[in-house]
Design a protein around this nucleic acid. Structure first.
Length: 379
RNA sequence: GGACGGGUGGGUGAGUGGCUAAAACCAGCAGACUGUAAAUCUGCCGCUCCUUGCGGGCUACGAAGGUUCGAAUCCUUCCCCGUCCA
């Protein structure tokens, strides 16, 4: 089985309804990737993810390299087998850790020198190394190592990060193709390039142009939703998607809030990932069709309704808000499990509705409805 | 009956003359979270007033008196609690 991506339908916006074939199953686009950094979507078992109909998840190169080690995972048959996840996996490269672990790393043209947050040991992550690790993990989609910078950033810094990201992408591409070919697995894994350029439209365009020369099978937009206003996120995304080939998947990395997702899709985005549904769940923030529910609030103490009365997930079919609130108050791990299950269901359901909306040509309606519902928190 | 030790804000518990409306933690209340160093982090947490200010007033460290410019902190008496001795 090999890779392919096809756009099945478009609408009046730039949205696309499509299908991504991977060696580990078909993924309907646009889609959302639940984040499972350490080969685990926190609080969910793989059984639960299957029940939720997740078709693809995200794992992290940097974290799995440090623990348990990519060679160990390779010896145990690859990441899919190791974690017993038969469906698709995308691995992020460690580029985000350049940003989030900024205190613990030093960047040079060669790569990123990290001091491990686990034991303080030093590690050099180069574009080649990141590619090698992801080949060992055997993820379906590998990301190139990029330099993700904070916002707002001075133009010179954004230019430098852009230049480095392109240079790294070139090296990563060469290494990945050569290595895959050598191992006779040229069609087993895809590798995506990542557009940078901070909040400068011309730099975004330039970054995209440079990466297009490398002819990746898919392109990501990185370095967004790191502090800038959402209008800027959308503007930068639009600049980039306008230049990307229509026959290849576009991945907006690290977004978004429930009410923002349809907007990104309308800009031509096919895939997204975000820790928000899982992290917020663990922090007692539940997403519903009526807006957010901060379930620890005392007003839910005797609320016998489900989290979301319009939700069909197994948690909403069985448990009350009062019980969820109690579990959080008591510090029971079941609180995180049930809340995460619901939030991931909610996100995946949004994607189902978005795909349907594209089919029916009413994505714009869906978007404005979501914004209206999330404009004010529910009573 | 005697000898010690102790009684502090919703709880545990620091503090032994002014820097104390009183540490810290817990509980409680509210908020944040966007390619996960996050089951994390932040704020509030005696009452009250207003011109919301590192503002004013009041009440508060078992009870009542006292010493002192000033007391949760020192003295006296009383009431409780714990341990030990008879």
């Amino acid at each position: 089985m090999s890779f392919s991506f096809e756009v099945l339908r478009t609408d009046a916006t730039s949205a696309r309804r499509g299908r991504l074939r991977t060696p580990h199953g078909v993924v309907q686009t646009p889609f959302f990737l639940p984040v499972g950094t350490q080969a685990s979507v926190k609080a969910l078992t793989q059984e639960a993810l299957e029940e939720l109909a997740a078709e693809i998840i995200l794992a992290n190169t940097y974290h799995l390299y440090l623990r348990p080690g990519h060679e160990l995972i390779r010896r145990l048959g690859g990441l899919h087998q190791f974690m017993s996840w038969p469906r698709a996996i995308l691995t992020d490269s460690g580029g985000y850790q350049v940003f989030s672990l900024s205190e613990l790393r030093k960047i040079t043209d060669e790569g990123v020198r990290f001091r491990s947050h686990l034991d303080g040991s030093e590690h050099l992550l180069t574009p080649e190394k990141a590619a090698e690790i992801q080949l060992a993990l055997g993820s379906d989609i590998a990301m190139v190592l990029d330099e993700c910078i904070e916002t707002p950033a001075p133009r010179e810094q954004a230019e430098a990060a852009l230049r480095r990201t392109t240079a790294w992408a070139r090296r990563a591409r060469a290494y990945f193709q050569e290595s895959a070919k050598r191992n006779g697995k040229a069609s087993q894994q895809w590798q995506f390039g990542i557009v940078q350029g901070a909040t400068f439209p011309d730099l975004r365009r330039e970054s995209a142009r440079q990466l297009l020369e490398l002819d990746f099978p898919g392109y990501a937009v990185g370095g967004l939703a790191v502090g800038e206003p959402n209008e800027v996120t959308c503007a930068m995304t639009a600049e980039v998607t306008a230049l990307l080939p229509k026959d290849r998947p576009r991945y907006l990395m690290g977004v978004g809030r429930p009410e923002q997702i349809a907007d990104y899709v309308a800009l031509g985005v096919d895939m997204m990932d975000c820790v928000l549904p899982t992290r917020a769940a663990r922090h007692a923030c539940l997403y519903t069709s009526e807006g957010r529910v901060l379930i620890k609030n005392s007003r839910f103490a005797e609320d016998q309704r489900p989290i979301d009365s319009h939700c069909s997930c197994s948690v909403c079919r069985r448990y009350t808000r009062a019980y969820l609130r109690h579990l959080f108050a008591a510090g029971e791990m079941t609180a995180a499990i049930l809340a995460t299950h619901h939030n991931v269901h909610f996100y995946l359901d949004i994607m189902r509705q978005i795909r349907e909306a594209i089919e029916f040509g009413n994505l714009a309606n869906f978007s404005s409805e979501m914004h209206a519902r999330y404009a004010a928190d529910p009573a």
